[in-house]
Design a protein around this nucleic acid. Sequence first.
DNA 1: CGGAATGTTGATATGCCTCAACTAAAGTGG
DNA 2: CCACTTTAGTTGAGGCATATCAACATTCCG
Lengths: 239, 239
Amino acid sequence: MEHIHNVIAQKFRAHSFLAEEDMVAIRTLRGHTRDMRPEEDIVRQGDLPQFAIVVLSGMVARYHLLRNGQRQYLSFHIAGDMPDAQALLLHDMDHAVCAIDRAEIGLIPHKELLTLFTLRPQLALAVWRETLIDAAIFRQAITNNGSRSGPARLAHFFCEQYCRAETVGLVRDKACPLPLSQAQIGQALGMSLVTANRALQKLRATGAADLRGGKLRMHDFRQLARLGQFDPAYLHLKS
Amino acid sequence: MEHIHNVIAQKFRAHSFLAEEDMVAIRTLRGHTRDMRPEEDIVRQGDLPQFAIVVLSGMVARYHLLRNGQRQYLSFHIAGDMPDAQALLLHDMDHAVCAIDRAEIGLIPHKELLTLFTLRPQLALAVWRETLIDAAIFRQAITNNGSRSGPARLAHFFCEQYCRAETVGLVRDKACPLPLSQAQIGQALGMSLVTANRALQKLRATGAADLRGGKLRMHDFRQLARLGQFDPAYLHLKS
DNA sequence: CGGAATGTTGATATGCCTCAACTAAAGTGG
DNA sequence: CCACTTTAGTTGAGGCATATCAACATTCCG
């Protein structure tokens, strides 16, 4: 439980200014944790969730499921993220949330959060802000998938994941966890598995970054950012 | 001024349940209106806007501007929409907002809205909900541009615009305004002008819909929805 | 009426998807 | 611990779709 509180508090501080009273209020939240297996769904399209998810460790993703069974990954989430905060106000899930690898999540009843919001409106604004940053990331995905070449797209994606991992302290030795298969990268970036593989090889060849064994190794961030035309402004980090 | 209040009130009612007191509170908002010329920017990437935009008439769009001058349209907005509500909490604009054709907009100081939110928290939730629906639309755009063929992508886009126009009473004789050039459609859907043109012709050939002279004529919505695998659930309309 | 913007069409080339074979790595059970 | 099975990654070849280029038609607007 403390774990949940700490993770939420750290994340909010990364983008919002909160009073000590807000921090105290966060610690009154009740909920439970759950361990997810790789690929396991947390909520499905069409569900009416009663709990908000907080990622405690591991990686979680949102995706659309198409008629033909094809999957489109929409975003990836790490410790501190609340990947379905939107369900607090929009009850029908228009997409699904699943674990990518082994993940630990916190589940907080919607009611708990909504009553907390009436007591500490600044916390509502903090969660709202988080959903707005999510939206900014979605917009970047539209632009990335719609108007950049394969390698540039992948470069931008890597820069984004790396920066976000950095803000929650998941970067060690210029590397961060990114437990995605090449097939999943393709399903996120709107390209085939084969194209994803070849894009990755091009990035390797530049020596800027490499993905191997679920770890993203960043050798030259500036070069990768140039390749992917990455500008972190849209992540709206305070610093 | 009344105009602004009416437009906002109608829109909020389409997705949120509000008390009579909330409706009264909306009428206390102060702001001014402004007429936009086609293509004119309302806010630019990097701006720190002090006013929230409400579209009163015409069409407004959000877009990213890339290094090479290329433009990626992200969303299109009609009467009742607040296309940059996010700037209330995220001060740096990570994208731009412009008029597509002649448009009338209302400008409400952020301060006005933020103080209103403290008095009537339900209104904050209504605006939050609106930004969440925006995000759902962005997610659909990712999926649409990433995993559907040209004609299907266009079909989905038409269905979305048509449904949204319908909810604010802009549909007349199975047609709604959609004043986009084929080049702009391409820049929204991640395809070239020529491909947009050919996709449009395919839709015409099916007899399901046609875009001509800035008007989207819907001849067979069900067929178009099938072509584009369109399911309006993500728009989160109350009805 | 003239000029500019928008829409339409065809030809060419590139790039991506699909299929398919193969390699490497990881996990399983004897 | 090794043989086996499964999954993930890699590589090549063929065909289709889209981008690009270019010419032309049409519409809009001054």
